[in-house]
Write a protein that binds this DNA or RNA. Structure first.
Lengths: 217, 217, 217, 217
DNA sequence: AATGAATGAGGGTTCATTCAT
DNA sequence: CATGAATGAACCCTCATTCAT
């Protein structure tokens, strides 16, 4: 009997294991969104996942590792969306950038739940080097790619007085800043209003490349 | 001479009480900056303040109230700097806005310590309505005043195609986003580089009103 | 055979849970008897039970609930002894009453330890409505049943000048008063001397029904 | 100036001091009655007395001593009432005993507040030898004196089959038991009903000496 | 003599982690 | 693999006591 299983069972087991991990990570995300970082306990997480209390340490060794894996999961999830957004966009740098902006303020990424979790992690990042490292790895890559797109537009459009690196930094900062606005309900922006702020800025820089967004009420 | 003192004694006691509170709040800020929100304990705070364990509950009743008062302290401190910055600026709206930008990226406001604490609170805000309320009260005011300055510039400079409200939202989002960049060391910006990003943007919108910043290395 | 066990395992777990609760309640009783109500700590109780500190909150949620459950346990224990005493007594009301008196001054009920615990609870009862409610539920029932026995004796023995309700109240008050005497070692009564006081009283009321006790030294 | 004061000030100071002590003791009694023994704090007591927090240790050295002094105060207060009751009664032993019973269920002694405090102390007595000693000193004296009265009645009335010591023990036990009944609201007796139970008993023993009480509704 | 801010040991409680089942 | 009862370190908070004023 044993000779038939080594090929099949490990695979399904690995899948089952991966499913358990994802189940726990998603429960963690939900709990942090609901209760906040500091009030989220293992009991909350396992209850949310409808699993037993001991299972986290079975799959993640410790709470700290679960949290780190959760952050990596979020980062990885964002990355795959980001790459998909770029791949599906038309080849022009303008389309690529618009596609990224659309993603950042899409229903998939820009939910209160996810923003709450991201800022929960960023709030802890100041004192947890591992979180910072995880965030930084991904983010600097995005900025570089975006700077590349801006550079292309600058070159092709004779905008030599502009600085691609700065524009990319501006785009990123605007995005994160608008996310925080939305989380804190500071200026009562919704997703589309936030996106309009970005598009407005892009239009002001490259009036021939980016359209004026419809101004929401 | 002695007959004047009885009036001073109660006052000095009241003052001492306020000083104690401030001492504890500052210790709390330091601890959150060092250890993060979730790892900051009362023992840490009182040790940092070189006071005894029981003193927080004497002056703040509970940890939760101390944290809220700390947030209010930070918000009030920022507000007084903000008002001072406006008062000391030349009367023109451009000067006012430059003054605010200078403040936001000054050595006083834009330190790693303070950014860490602000984002620690914002990270918890998603699940603590009291924090959100405290933040929102102040912030919406700033945006309104800034929008007023932009409106003035727009009116006086014949820039009717621009939208003051959006520009103010952009300025705020940029500021918060750059702060997060700095905290996460995402693009390795320092205070001056971050400020340059903002000034670059302002120049791009109102080239006659805001100068191009010196591009740092 | 193995197919029958799956039914037993959950039951044994449930049983174990009930046993843990009883173990903790008994430890609580011992601690209150030894140290008194106000000096009994969770650490004392769990140490007495040779269990860990956290276990009380696992099984009782809080100290207050443990104490209430302890009171209920004591009340329930007394009740079952009381019912057993009545069931095992001969059918005559005299036998029933004698049986109750014997119980109240038996080695089972009338120990220094138990008296100390009962009075510890009664001492707190003045300010804890839940304790009072718990006590009252049981006690008024006993008085009523005893009044019934007295009524029977009165009716059958032509003692119409007596008042069953008052006699029952007298019996109860005497019992509780003698318990307090014993706890405070006020008149240095032992169990038998205390019982003799009661039997003496019963004899004085119903000389034909209750015997004069042997007067102890 | 100083030569006139040594005679007067110490006396008035001693009085003031004694008044402070009594003030604190009365506050203690009120607090124990309201909150119970275990929940009564020094802050409660000094607040109730409208005095400063530090004053207890000035006058009583410690909380424990204040509590002991409170018990002694209660015991002394009862004693003086008891002696007054005996002195004011007619010389016959029957009058003396009736006078004591009247006292024990008078508005002065038999209040919920005082019962709550007495039982609070008795509840702690099981584990505090000092309390027990304080209680026992007084109580055994009362029993002896009462036994003396019963002995007198027995001798004068040819009741030689009765046992004065037992009757005194019965009277005491009944009194304490009825007090507990009233505290726990076990049978909803009021002061007069409780007294009637005692008088009923006395009448049943000495029908020619003690009257049947009016049976309350 | 009186005050009440300050102290810190010790209280009840929480919760990440372990491990027998 | 999975469970959840059990553990105990560490948390927040209380409060008797001290002591500078």
């Amino acid at each position: 009997m044993a000779h038939a299983e080594p090929e099949i069972i490990p695979r399904s087991r690995a899948l089952a294991k991966e499913r358990r991990r994802e189940q726990l990570i998603k429960a963690t995300i939900n709990c942090i969104a609901k209760r906040g970082f500091s009030a989220t306990t293992m009991a909350d997480i396992t209850k949310e996942a409808k699993l037993s209390l001991g299972i986290v340490n079975l799959h993640f060794q410790s709470k700290e590792k679960l949290l780190l894996e959760t952050l990596k999961y979020l980062a990885g999830e964002y990355q795959s969306h980001w790459e998909k957004a770029l791949n599906e966009a038309a080849p022009s740098p303008v389309s690529k950038l618009v596609s990224v902006v659309n993603l950042d303020f899409s229903k998939t990424i820009c939910t209160r739940k996810k923003l709450a979790v991201w800022f929960a992690f960023w709030g802890e990042t100041g004192s947890r080097p591992m979180y910072m490292k995880t965030c930084a790895e991904y983010d600097s890559h995005y900025t570089k790619v975006e700077a590349g797109f801006f550079a292309e537009i600058i070159r092709d459009g004779n905008y030599q007085h502009l600085h691609a690196q700065t524009l990319a930094a501006t785009l990123d900062a605007l995005t994160y800043g608008l996310w925080l606005d939305m989380l804190l309900m500071r200026n009562d922006l919704d997703r589309n209003q936030a996106k309009a702020v970005i598009m407005d800025w892009l239009h002001s820089i490259f009036p021939n490349h980016f359209q004026i967004p419809d101004r929401p009420a």
